[in-house]
Structures are given as structure tokens and as C-alpha cells.
């Protein structure tokens, strides 16, 4: 598969009035097309910074972020899904998922509207098309948020802990849904999460970051049987992966405190 994203010796400093925070130190990794990659690391290590760099919301202090062969980030190639669903309460579900189309006014608008319609049907939200988001459950809201992202047909999906605000049951089900949607739409995705088992169950590859300033500590290619994240959790090697990543993260936190 073709490489879609490459971090090449990326450094990043946050500027504040009293301080300069060294967030990323020579981060190197790459993501291939249709790959599902998770980024895990100690809290506050700069995971979201990485996503912001990919989305073009921040510029690297040095080094390069290369998206689809270019170091000039084209925002239209990125779909960003946040921890909160960020649905606009005053817009109907339909108006929410077509928000990006309103902003970008693509030439093939009719096709995209058709796609939006299909996605709503496919993921059983069609009956709620004209409802306001407040009448939906948390899981449904996140599915609407995902469709809003998918309608723009991004090459790369960025998922910033999109499940963390949900209760456990909803979370597991939504993981399955999102996984299925991403795989069946043949999308590439990068997931940032605190939840190690979530990362293992969904990913093809896990990038383990060190504490701040973050660099890539380990890259783990996963080989689990099962079609869905829930099934993958039953694989016998699941706990082995979990232990390995957990140990790496605790060592990081220890060395940070010590």
C-alpha cells in the first residue's frame, strides 16, 4: 500500500508568555493507505499536538509533515473527529452532516449529498434526519459526527479520543460501528487514545510515544484474528500486547517522575 502520511524529524514548541514548551522531539513515523494506526502515550505527551499538525492547524517548528506527497497540508484531505461530538444544536441532523459541504462548496455537491443520504440510511440514522441533535443518544451523536466527517470523503481520518465521553457499553458498540464504517469505506485512520485495549482492538499498528518532549518509543504491528474490535479482544495474543504496551507506558511515567 502507498504511504499517505509521513512525519520526518518533527519538532514542535508551544510558545507562551513565560515559557516555551518542548512538545515533540524528532517524531518519525509513517502511515500507509487504509491502515488503522493508534497513538498511545502518557497523558499530556503531545498526542493531540500530532493530530493538530496533521490537520494543518499547527505548523511544525522544524522537520516536515508530509501528507499525500506534499508538505503543504490540504485540509480537505483530512477529516477530524473530536472527543466531543461538536454537533450544532440549532441545526438538524441533516444540516449537521452537510455542514462541511456548506463550507467547502465542492463541485460534485449532488454526489456528496447523495452519499450523505446513503450513509444516514446505512448507519440507521435516516429516521432522525430532520431531528435536532438533542433528541439523540450519545452513541448516535458520535455516529452523526462520524458521518459529518465521512461526507467530505477525507483521505485520512483523525480520531481524537472520540469514544472517551461515552459509557462503557456504548463505547464498545460504537468502536465496532466506527471500525466497520472505516473499513468498509476503505479509509485510513489515526486514533489517539488513553485506552490501551481500545487501541489494540482497533488498530493495525500502534505508535507508543514517550513522555514530553515526545518521541516515538515503539511501533507495534498487530496481528489479531477477528473481524470486529470486540472479537479481536478474544484473541489469545491480546493480553500479551496489552502487557507490553502497559509496561512501556508505566516505565515512561516512572522515569518522568523519577
Amino acid at each position: 500500500m502507498k504511504e499517505i502520511l509521513k512525519f520526518d524529524n518533527v519538532k514542535y514548541f508551544y510558545q507562551t508568555k513565560d515559557d516555551e514548551i518542548f512538545a515533540l522531539d524528532n517524531v518519525n513515523f509513517n502511515v500507509k493507505e487504509q491502515e488503522f494506526v493508534s497513538i498511545v502515550g502518557p497523558s499530556g505527551c503531545g498526542k493531540t499536538t500530532i493530530l493538530s499538525l496533521i490537520a494543518g492547524l499547527l505548523k511544525p517548528s522544524s522537520g516536515e509533515v508530509i501528507l499525500d506527497g506534499s508538505n503543504k497540508i490540504d485540509t480537505k484531505k483530512i477529516g477530524y473527529m473530536f472527543q466531543r461530538d461538536m454537533l450544532f444544536d440549532w441545526r438538524s441532523v441533516w444540516k449537521n452532516i452537510t455542514l462541511g459541504l456548506e463550507l467547502q462548496k465542492p463541485k460534485n455537491l449532488d454526489e456528496k449529498l447523495k452519499l450523505a443520504d446513503e450513509l444516514l440510511k446505512k448507519y440507521s440514522l435516516y429516521n432522525f434526519k430532520n431531528k435536532k441533535p438533542r433528541s439523540l443518544s450519545g452513541g448516535m451523536r458520535q455516529r452523526v459526527a462520524l458521518i459529518r466527517t465521512l461526507v467530505l470523503e477525507p483521505k485520512l481520518l483523525l480520531l481524537d479520543e472520540p469514544f472517551s465521553a461515552l459509557d462503557f457499553q456504548t463505547r464498545l458498540n460504537l468502536c465496532d460501528d466506527v471500525y466497520e464504517i472505516i473499513k468498509s469505506e476503505k479509509k485510513t485512520a489515526i486514533l489517539v487514545t488513553h485506552d490501551i485495549s481500545e487501541a489494540i482492538s482497533m488498530s493495525d499498528k500502534i505508535i507508543v510515544l514517550s513522555s514530553r518532549p515526545a518521541c516515538v518509543k515503539d511501533e507495534i504491528i498487530l496481528n489479531l484474528s477477528g473481524d470486529t474490535p470486540l472479537k479481536k479482544r478474544e484473541d489469545s495474543s491480546f493480553s500479551g500486547y496489552f502487557e507490553k504496551i502497559w509496561r512501556e507506558l508505566t516505565n515512561e511515567e516512572k522515569s518522568e517522575n523519577g
Binding site: 492547524l57 485540509t75 473530536f82 461538536m86 450544532f88 440549532w90 462541511g100 463550507l103 467547502q104
Partner: peptide, 25 residues
């Protein structure tokens, strides 16, 4: 702020942020 970030990630300009988010919200 999160919604502003969402609009920015969708390539919205400042006028669109005003028109689609700030004024209706």
C-alpha cells in the same frame, strides 16, 4: 472553542466561522 476548531479543520474562513457558528450560537 472546540466547534471553532472543527470548522477550522473543515477549512472554514473567519467569515464562515462568524456566520455558521458565532452568530447562531
Amino acid at each position: 472553542e472546540g466547534k471553532i476548531l472543527l470548522l477550522k479543520s473543515m477549512n472554514a474562513n473567519k467569515f464562515q466561522i462568524l456566520w455558521k457558528l458565532i452568530l447562531p450560537s
